[in-house]
Computed example of a mutant assay.
Amino acid sequence: MAQIRRAPLADQAAEALLVRIRAGEWPLGAKLPGETTLGPQLGVGRSTVREAIRQLAGRGVLESRQGAGVFVTALDVTEDWDAVLRRAGIISVIEARIAIEAEAAAHAAERRTPQALRAVRRALAERQDQRGSTEEQVDADMRLHRAIVAAADNPVLLELFDTFVPRLRQAMVDMLRIGRNLAEEQDHAAHADLVEAIAARDAAAAHRLSRTHLASLKDALK
């Protein structure tokens, strides 16, 4: 007969601390009491308190500052990003693309190096020559858009895009499979115009063209 296993003490202590943070016992930015105070309150030892704090720090709720103590940096655990993306609908995905990619396109126009521009042009040519499966077409499109984001020279934007790609890719595959896409020539022209704006260092045009193109994908779903 299978035994019911209790959660480890550190997990229980972390949950108890989280409940108290959610209840407002310690506001955002507040310093937590020391381990010698929290331990008796939670009914655990100091090592268990340290592990509970480490868990909540890893989840973005607490931050340990050397020589200063432990501070509240969030009032709840943020939902797992991958779970959010898996649940998101195609329109939500495209709206997020607009937020990330239009800004990245403007920065790319301002900051792109000759090497980055060559990578963008190469990805554009590969995208336009792609005649494979739906998945291969989407992958070629993703490579172009990633090259543009990389040209923006902002590691945070690039990290956001890379984290976003699996759900983004699936959304684009779904769109093509249900026939909700722009005419092929018009679509290629939109991408070519965007690349030329980046080459010309026209940040305003790059931002506008990126936003207009992605908004047209969103409108096609309505």
Rank of each mutant, 00 (worst) to 15 (best):
A16Y: 01
P40A: 11
R211F: 05
A99D: 08
G45D: 13
L117S: 03
A192M: 04
A204N: 07
Q170W: 03
A205S: 14
Q115R: 14
L168N: 10
L42G: 08
N181P: 00
L17V: 08
L38M: 12
R211H: 11
Q66R: 15
V77F: 03
M1A: 15
R177H: 10
V84Y: 12
A189G: 03
R167A: 15
R65L: 13
V173K: 05
V49F: 05
E15R: 08
M175I: 06
L157G: 06
L168V: 03
D139H: 02
H213K: 05
D141I: 00
E63M: 09
V93F: 02
R118I: 08
A197E: 04
Q186C: 06
R121I: 02
A199P: 00
R87P: 01
A16D: 11
A140D: 04
I4W: 07
Q3I: 10
E35T: 13
G34R: 14
Q55W: 00
R50N: 08
Q186R: 14
V19Q: 12
S92Y: 04
E184R: 15
R20Q: 14
V93W: 01
V156G: 04
A57N: 05
I53E: 05
A119F: 06
G69K: 12
T163G: 15
R112C: 14
R97L: 07
Q186D: 12
A96C: 09
R131T: 15
H207C: 02
V156M: 13
R208I: 03
S47C: 09
R22I: 07
G39A: 15
A190R: 13
I94R: 02
A150Q: 07
Q3Y: 09
R167Q: 09
Q41A: 15
L17C: 05
R146T: 14
M172S: 04
L144Y: 05
A108H: 01
E95M: 08
A116K: 10
R118Y: 06
E136L: 10
M1R: 14
D80A: 10
T48K: 01
L38F: 09
F161T: 01
L85W: 12
A183D: 15
A197D: 04
L42C: 10
